[in-house]
Design a protein around this nucleic acid. Structure first.
Lengths: 353, 353
DNA sequence: TTGAAAGCGCTAACAA
DNA sequence: TTGTTAGCGCTTTCAA
């Protein structure tokens, strides 16, 4: 009965394979082992594992028992090879240490896990070369899809489903054939500026970081719209790096040069903290003399002294939309292009009291 | 010349396979495609890819050119199946949102990437059930190794190399057959308490979180040793959750009940911030009336107002030791058991001025 | 230096 | 309801 298999997988070739790979390895248990122990064929075992029907209740019970007993874990690699589908999603992220990205990636991972997908997180540290290397690895791994939080546009990724999230890709046009999920940064900037205006601020400056990031641009645009509505002058301070030290330095320079803002809209919470450090050194009180808003509603915003009014993006919604869009497309139901813009809201705290 | 292959992979079976899987899929390029275009055998292409020698310079150039031209990415899944080695490492982490864990995982990922390993990050949210599910997935994926940052001991993971890091496994004994990498928490607690003593504090209380975590216990032990050396009484406050709100609440209760510490050793920076929030509400000044130390030297510690003296663990060293130990063992050179304890140091800031 | 072919563990078409 | 078997893309042995 088993004679026909001898040629391909004869008993004599088991413990030590021809090329010697398994010499030190304990006899691996695979679907064939389970089939033999259960007295059925590998096809039946496969059907039970994947619940594809066409087996009896007794057969199923038997197979399950043997699998349990032998602590059998189906080999996903073989399954992936056969199905040309790895059930792995790559996530390209610039900096996982950044709490905003960490939260987003975590939520994406959670959502994917719920759908039985694994997540490979690739940190690029904003390096294009590293991003390219990561992509090559992911393609070699035949990932089912890639989530880009990088802002870089990738054109030649034909065989893999791609979603851009949080940072829109370079040169993005609304009718581009790609999927983009972002939050409403323009409204975020507007809400922050509007809050300061409503509290009576009339000399409002925007503190932003010096990068060409589209999100920052949109936050600035929203800020400008709010000021324009009230016929107030818009002013900006550009910080070289997103660090509190750099922000503190810039704000000191700005004020020493003679400016005296009564409101500060910052494009991240870190910049807001930096601004407060700078102001404190000059003896200027927050919020009495200067009101401040941050962005991201990070843990810092709720804990800092004073607590920081901040624009909150719904990371959970963003992650869910991302995973839904991705899996829809992987499963073949989704359209080529999509553009989701998620709402934001303002969390008011002590810095705008 | 190719006739012999017709039976297994004849041209007529390419565009649409028997089971119809590839109907909508573009003709996949694989090692055979490259071999045909380059006019060599698949064995030769494989040798070039893996630099296994036994090919001429011209052959190599030709093969490389074709691979480049066709944007060919060797299928890692097939390679893994054949080699029974996935070059994927699973990392089990309780909470990737925690900056300490995020940093550690990031560094581990970086180190692994350098050795051409991919990292699958599994967030357990401290749930045993989720941890078990993640492990099953990882075993099915035939990962080359698993890094546990979970504190749970796993006994039946025979076929996979395991390293425990940052949190030692349950019931760990120094001569256990497992690999443990942790930082010197006892010294951390000692250094923090010692700093306060040196600044003149005599009534020093320890604020810790209510979990059975071994690291916390060691930090407490170190604190107790420092106080014992000076014949000072050790006192502890246990907070239910590691949140600033809970810590603030506890410290207020403690002081309202009549205690008046002049020093506070906290087992995390968040607890230190919570303590300061609580003290501020009572009008007690830091560091003038109470000096405080945190732990982890998180971003919070450097940014908070006042900046927080904190115990710094070298995350970089911990990650490198982890990856080195893991790969050593995967490559077959490493011993069964190992126990590495990494040094810590104190970063002094305003809260102990 | 090169090529032919077995086989890693699995799924699914096809036959029974 | 069940079994047999081709083949996913790759590496490596063996033969030339």
């Amino acid at each position: 009965m088993e004679a026909g298999l001898e040629g391909r997988n004869g008993e004599e070739s088991r413990p030590v394979m021809k090329d010697g790979r398994t010499i030190a390895m304990r006899d691996r248990i695979n679907i064939k082992t389970i089939a033999e122990k259960a007295g059925v064929s590998v096809a039946t075992v496969s059907r039970v594992i994947n619940q594809n029907g066409r087996f009896s209740a007794e057969t199923e019970a038997m197979v399950r028992r043997v699998m349990e007993e032998m602590d059998y874990h189906p080999n996903t690699i073989a399954k992936s090879l056969r199905e040309n589908h790895s059930r792995i999603i790559g996530v390209i992220v610039p900096d996982i240490m950044n709490a905003h990205f960490a939260g987003l990636v975590l939520e994406i991972e959670k959502n994917l896990f719920r759908h039985a997908y694994s997540t490979v997180i690739c940190n690029t540290n904003e390096s294009d070369a590293l991003e390219r290397k990561h992509i090559d690895t992911l393609l070699s791994q035949r990932v089912s899809g890639i989530v880009f939080i990088s802002g870089k546009r990738h054109y030649s990724l034909d065989d893999v489903t791609v979603v851009y999230v949080d940072r829109r890709p370079d040169n993005y046009e609304i009718d581009d054939d790609c999927v983009v999920i972002e939050s409403d940064n323009e409204s975020g900037g507007y809400l922050a500026a509007r809050c300061l205006i409503d509290k009576g601020c009339r000399n409002i400056t925007m503190l932003y970081a010096n990068n060409t990031d589209h999100n920052q641009k949109m936050r600035i645009a929203g800020y400008e719209r709010a000021l324009r509505e009230q016929a107030l002058a818009a002013r900006t301070i550009c910080v070289d790096t997103i660090t509190a030290v750099a922000a503190a330095e810039k704000i000191r320079e700005y004020i020493r040069a003679g400016s005296r803002p009564d409101g500060l809209v910052c494009t991240t919470d870190i910049l807001a903290i930096g601004a407060m450090i700078g102001l404190r050194e000059l003896g200027i009180r927050v919020p009495q003399e200067v009101r401040i808003t941050g962005y991201d509603d990070s843990m810092l915003a709720a804990l800092y002294n004073p607590t920081i009014t901040s624009v909150r993006q719904s990371i959970e919604d963003m992650a869910q939309k991302t995973v839904d869009s991705l899996l829809e497309r992987i499963d073949g139901g989704g359209k080529e292009r999509a553009h989701h813009v998620l709402p934001v809201h303002l969390v008011e705290r002590e810095t705008t009291k």
